Amino acid sequence: MSVGTIYGLGLGPGDADLMSVRADRLLRNARHVAFFRKKGRKGQARQIVEGMLRDDVIEFPMEYPVTTEIPVTDPRYNELLSAFYAETTAHLRHLSAAGEDVVVLCEGDPFFYGSFMHLYSRLVDHVPVQIVPAITGMSGAWTATGAPITWGDDVLTVLMGTLDQPRLEAHIKATDALVVMKIGRNFDKVVAALKNAGKYDDAWLVEFATMPNQTVNRLRDVGGKITPYFSIIVVHGQGRRP
């Protein structure tokens, strides 16, 4: 019996119309579909593909044991997630060994700050794995602002809001164009870093980019109320142009 292939399927930023043709084809023909979700939630990736799965699909929800309940610096955080990834990897390897292909749904692009990377590193030396790339969430966000993110020789920097404030400020000062992800509980720290780096007034906040509930606002106009997860801050470059 031939082994099955695990597909890391990039869904794009959230609008199903922005999926690639290949992703759509694989998804609609998949017998086994796996996806990440928080306990008690349907899962954003699963929600994106609602109505696109075949009637006899076998779903495998992979429920995170922890997300924001404890800080990432707590040793338990890595212990819990490592055990979780080991367990889910074992299940996927079992399906592959039985000759079954599995599509793993990935928001955005599978190789860009996604959970699938942790499965990939555990699978790639043991079973066939293929990656289906996709439009990233940040691309959807800067497109939503209606302005180019970079011009000419602009340098684009992508930062995680989880960085400490001095590092955030240093990177923000050194770049031309900027994307900040993983804002959530780091919102106040990111805002302070933008202000100290002199780029607060140029920043935009995009929530739920490309989704039906998308919002696009100047950061200075939103106050302290943001969506913890689906939020991206964008600062456009102003570089060389004809």
Results as ranks from 00 to 15, higher is better:
40 G>H: 02
14 G>I: 02
52 M>N: 05
33 V>D: 01
41 R>A: 10
42 K>H: 08
20 S>T: 14
35 F>D: 07
21 V>L: 01
72 V>E: 15
58 I>F: 11
10 G>W: 03
63 E>F: 09
65 P>D: 02
68 T>L: 09
22 R>F: 01
54 R>C: 12
34 A>W: 02
56 D>K: 05
52 M>W: 04
60 F>T: 15
10 G>M: 09
36 F>A: 04
68 T>R: 15
50 E>M: 00
50 E>P: 04
10 G>K: 08
60 F>E: 15
11 L>A: 07
25 R>S: 09
13 P>W: 09
23 A>C: 02
55 D>V: 03
18 L>Y: 06
22 R>S: 09
46 R>N: 14
13 P>H: 07
28 R>L: 11
33 V>Y: 04
24 D>W: 09
20 S>M: 01
69 E>P: 12
37 R>D: 05
44 Q>D: 10
44 Q>S: 13
57 V>A: 15
45 A>S: 10
32 H>A: 12
27 L>F: 10
17 D>Q: 03
23 A>K: 03
70 I>Y: 01
47 Q>T: 12
52 M>R: 07
24 D>A: 12
65 P>F: 01
41 R>D: 09
63 E>V: 13
37 R>T: 06
70 I>N: 05
47 Q>F: 10
58 I>V: 15
33 V>W: 09
43 G>R: 03
45 A>K: 08
9 L>S: 06
55 D>A: 14
49 V>W: 00
44 Q>W: 10
33 V>P: 10
39 K>I: 06
59 E>N: 13
68 T>G: 12
52 M>E: 04
42 K>S: 02
64 Y>G: 07
59 E>S: 13
15 D>V: 00
38 K>F: 04
46 R>Y: 12
26 L>I: 00
52 M>D: 01
44 Q>H: 13
35 F>N: 02
11 L>Q: 12
55 D>L: 06
14 G>Y: 04
72 V>T: 15
68 T>M: 14
36 F>H: 01
20 S>V: 02
34 A>R: 01
57 V>Q: 07
45 A>F: 11
9 L>V: 11
53 L>D: 11
73 T>I: 03
9 L>E: 03
64 Y>E: 01
38 K>D: 11
38 K>T: 13
67 T>L: 14
61 P>F: 10
70 I>V: 05
52 M>G: 01
55 D>K: 13
25 R>C: 02
14 G>V: 01
48 I>G: 05
15 D>E: 08
60 F>C: 14
14 G>A: 08
65 P>H: 02
23 A>F: 05
44 Q>P: 05
67 T>G: 09
27 L>G: 10
23 A>N: 00
23 A>S: 03
63 E>D: 08
49 V>T: 03
55 D>I: 02
39 K>G: 12
70 I>A: 00
